[in-house]
Computed example of a mutant assay.
Amino acid sequence: MNKKKTIAIIPARGGSKRLPGKNIKLLGDLPLLVHSIRYAQQHEFIDAVYVSTDDAAIKNVTLTYGAKVVDRPENLSGDFEPTVSALKHVLEVVGAGVENVILLQVTNPLRPDTLLKQAFLKYKEGEYDSLFTVTRNHQKFGKIANDKFIPFNYEIGQRSQDLEPLYYENGLLYITKASVILQNEIITKEAFPLEVNHPFADVDIDTQEDFDYAEFLLNKTNN
Results as ranks from 00 to 15, higher is better:
51 V>C: 05
90 V>C: 11
99 E>N: 14
160 S>F: 11
64 T>A: 02
179 S>F: 02
40 A>E: 04
142 G>T: 00
93 V>L: 07
221 T>V: 06
61 V>H: 09
193 P>G: 09
62 T>C: 06
150 I>Q: 05
155 E>S: 11
111 R>D: 01
7 I>V: 07
37 I>P: 07
24 I>W: 15
119 A>E: 00
62 T>L: 12
39 Y>P: 00
127 E>V: 13
35 H>W: 12
201 A>F: 09
109 P>Q: 02
162 D>L: 13
218 L>T: 06
59 K>L: 02
176 T>N: 02
3 K>C: 07
48 A>H: 07
173 L>H: 04
43 H>M: 05
140 K>E: 01
61 V>I: 12
178 A>W: 10
65 Y>G: 04
125 E>S: 14
24 I>A: 10
32 L>A: 08
13 R>E: 01
211 F>H: 11
213 Y>N: 06
110 L>D: 03
51 V>E: 06
49 V>H: 11
92 E>N: 15
166 L>I: 12
180 V>E: 00
81 E>P: 02
67 A>C: 07
121 L>W: 11
128 Y>G: 08
15 G>W: 09
12 A>M: 12
138 H>N: 05
75 N>G: 08
174 Y>M: 02
83 T>V: 15
39 Y>S: 01
54 D>P: 09
189 K>S: 02
67 A>D: 06
101 V>Y: 06
192 F>V: 06
68 K>E: 05
34 V>W: 07
24 I>Y: 15
80 F>D: 00
148 K>H: 04
48 A>V: 04
210 D>W: 08
60 N>T: 12
81 E>S: 12
37 I>F: 11
12 A>L: 12
198 H>K: 13
88 K>G: 01
197 N>R: 13
46 I>F: 05
209 E>R: 14
193 P>F: 09
82 P>D: 01
48 A>L: 09
174 Y>P: 00
9 I>T: 00
170 N>T: 03
207 T>K: 15
202 D>T: 13
132 F>W: 11
146 N>H: 13
215 E>N: 13
51 V>T: 12
113 D>V: 13
104 L>H: 02
160 S>C: 12
52 S>H: 03
32 L>H: 09
45 F>G: 00
69 V>C: 10
120 F>Y: 13
150 I>K: 04
115 L>A: 05
185 E>V: 06
47 D>R: 12
24 I>R: 15
125 E>W: 14
126 G>R: 10
107 T>K: 04
203 V>I: 15
54 D>W: 12
87 L>T: 01
30 L>C: 09
42 Q>R: 15
75 N>W: 10
205 I>E: 12
84 V>K: 08
83 T>G: 03
80 F>C: 00
143 K>T: 02
181 I>S: 11
80 F>Y: 09
153 N>M: 06
17 K>M: 07
178 A>I: 00
93 V>C: 11
202 D>M: 14
15 G>I: 08
67 A>R: 08
153 N>A: 09
127 E>D: 14
65 Y>D: 05
46 I>Q: 07
208 Q>F: 08
32 L>N: 08
192 F>A: 03
19 L>V: 06
216 F>S: 04
168 Y>I: 08
88 K>P: 01
151 P>R: 03
87 L>D: 01
179 S>Q: 06
139 Q>A: 10
150 I>W: 07
196 V>E: 06
196 V>R: 04
170 N>P: 07
201 A>D: 11
73 P>C: 01
218 L>D: 10
16 S>E: 14
41 Q>A: 05
36 S>N: 12
54 D>E: 13
211 F>E: 08
182 L>S: 03
124 K>I: 11
